[in-house]
Simulated assay, not measured.
Amino acid sequence: MGQIQVEKNAGGIEGLCVITPTVHGDSRGYFMETYNQKDMEEAGLTMQFVQDNQSASSKGVLRGLHFQKQYPQGKLVRVIKGCVFDVAVDLRENSQTYGKWFGVELSEENKKQFYIPEGFAHGFLVLSDTAEFCYKCTDFYHPNDEGGLAWNDPEIGIVWPKLTGSYNGTPSGDGYSLDDGTKLLLSDKDQLWKGLKDTFHFA
């Protein structure tokens, strides 16, 4: 019996999948399968994973939007502590939904997973005090292969929840904060990415 429910083509974007596991719980706690190759294959998800990663971030941290140029990675992502808003942007040149985005809240409470295939940019915003983020990858990480897009590119138009501020023409986080006053935190690198049209000339 399968232990997952899969919402395919989430947000109308081919390939994106939101996966909800079956949780077996009682007064003592809970148990769930976080990955089962047979169940994934029965759901039509036949990718193979070669690397697992984990990160920790504080509230207000926004990571992204990242992609790999020559060695694209499919990613199966989930949150084991806290809550994030996770986003994928379609960068497949011939896709009917090129440049479109979809976001989903991932948390330790809802235990949802999000599969983002190769050819997408990915990022997330931490909504809880801290968040621990885990993901499986279909290819190894190549440190010199990373690209990125401005998280606030108005052409993409991501609506980040609980985030307030006005676009000032740059990807800087200056002037942005969560609704409780927590300032938006970005890495130096993530404040330098350009928008879709300036990154991909066929856009």
Rank of each mutant, 00 (worst) to 15 (best):
L45Q: 08
Y98K: 12
L178G: 06
N152D: 14
T199G: 04
G64P: 01
N53A: 11
D180T: 05
Q37K: 15
L125M: 13
C137H: 10
Q51W: 05
E93F: 10
S187V: 06
E93L: 02
F85D: 13
L62N: 08
K75C: 10
S95G: 10
H201Y: 10
L62H: 04
Y176Q: 03
S57F: 10
E7Q: 12
K197P: 00
G60Y: 11
V23D: 08
T164K: 14
T22A: 14
G12R: 13
D86I: 07
I156Q: 07
V104M: 03
K183P: 01
N152W: 09
T138Y: 02
V104W: 11
G147V: 04
S95A: 07
L186C: 00
Y71K: 12
E7M: 06
V84A: 12
F124A: 04
N152Y: 12
F200E: 08
P154T: 13
Q5S: 12
R92E: 09
T20N: 05
L127D: 06
K59P: 13
K111M: 09
E105W: 01
T164Q: 15
G99A: 07
D52K: 02
R78C: 09
Q5V: 06
I19N: 04
K59M: 14
K189H: 00
K81R: 14
E132L: 10
T97G: 13
A43Q: 06
V18W: 07
D174L: 00
Y141T: 14
Q48Y: 03
G157E: 12
S177I: 00
I19Q: 02
T138S: 15
V159W: 02
K111Q: 15
S177F: 01
G99T: 09
K38Y: 04
N144R: 11
V87R: 11
K189V: 04
Q37V: 11
